[in-house]
Computed example of a mutant assay.
Amino acid sequence: MQKIILLIALITFNVASSQTKKKQILLVGTFHYANPGLDVAKLNNFNIMSEKSQKELEIMSDKIKKFGPDKIFVEWEFSKQADLDKFYNKNTDSLFKANKSEITQLALRTAKKLNHKKLYGMNLYTPFRYDSLMIAMEKADQKDLIAKNKLTTESFEKNHNEKINKSSLQEMMLYYNTKQAENENLQWYLEIANRAGNPDDFTGPSLVANWYKRNLYMYSLIQKLTESTDNKIMILVGAGHASIIREFIIHDPTFEIVELSTVLK
């Protein structure tokens, strides 16, 4: 009788454990491999098509394959999933030779190795009103804040461009996923943007709120599209998104973060 009770207890414990097991998220923040020059900071491009970088992409994608995500989410418009599906099914070799995007070079490369049927778009683009932010600062005569913003942007550009000239692709990826890099990405919104404008002008806080809202909506899509059968997922987004999405994941008991550094070691 005691053996039966013990067996039932063990079964109950195992069922409870399986129900509370967290899903793993490999959160990958990145610089844009094919920088279109649309960001506020003007960053130098990385030669993603070089033989060295292509070899690194093969190694990185092999290691992510070993991690084994069941789904890979990318910064592609959610409303244009059909276009992403068509893109995913194009000739892979020609894509790797012609398209520099991190979606192609890292996410698609990995998904193909995993025999995934598709990538999942979860981007929700909203205009980034940087010009309005600067106008609000000027109207409020915030000379110190304008100077600080200029210095911060220049420092970010200089740091990135110096690193990109002497670092390998993997080194750059690992750097953009450090706590320091994520904090720097997030810090600008609260230290500078949120202060912009006169006391009765909420242009700055509105920009920050819309940025958080966009990322929250993106995270909502990740939550909704992650099924009960998905034990591991990968999210590939610009580093600015990753710093905020990380905070959402930390406070969501469904998930736990797997650091890129542990996967690429």
Rank of each mutant, 00 (worst) to 15 (best):
K3M: 14
L10C: 13
I11E: 05
A16R: 08
K21F: 10
K21L: 13
K22G: 09
L27I: 02
T30H: 10
Y33S: 00
L38P: 07
D39E: 14
D39P: 04
V40F: 04
K42Q: 14
N44F: 10
N47K: 07
I48V: 12
M49V: 02
E58Y: 04
E58L: 09
M60A: 02
K65Y: 10
K66W: 11
F67A: 06
D70F: 00
F73R: 02
F73H: 09
Q81K: 06
Q81S: 15
D85N: 15
K86A: 14
Y88L: 11
N91S: 14
D93W: 13
F96C: 00
K97P: 03
N99T: 10
N99L: 11
K100V: 06
K100P: 00
L106W: 01
L106H: 04
A107Q: 10
N115Y: 06
L119E: 02
P127I: 07
F128E: 01
D131G: 09
L133I: 13
M134L: 09
I135W: 05
A140P: 10
K143L: 12
I146W: 02
A147W: 05
N149G: 08
L151Y: 13
E154D: 03
E154A: 06
F156I: 02
F156D: 03
H160R: 01
N161T: 08
I164P: 00
N165D: 05
N165T: 03
K166L: 00
S167I: 04
S168D: 03
L174K: 01
N177Q: 04
N177M: 03
T178L: 03
K179L: 15
Q187T: 09
L190M: 13
E191K: 14
T203H: 00
L207W: 01
Y212Q: 01
Y219H: 03
L221E: 09
L221Q: 05
I222Q: 00
K224Q: 13
T229D: 12
M234D: 02
M234E: 01
L236G: 07
L236H: 14
V237P: 02
G240C: 15
G240Y: 15
H241Q: 13
E247L: 07
F248M: 10
H251R: 14
T254R: 15
I257K: 12
V258D: 06
E259H: 14
E259M: 06
L260I: 15
L260C: 07
S261H: 11
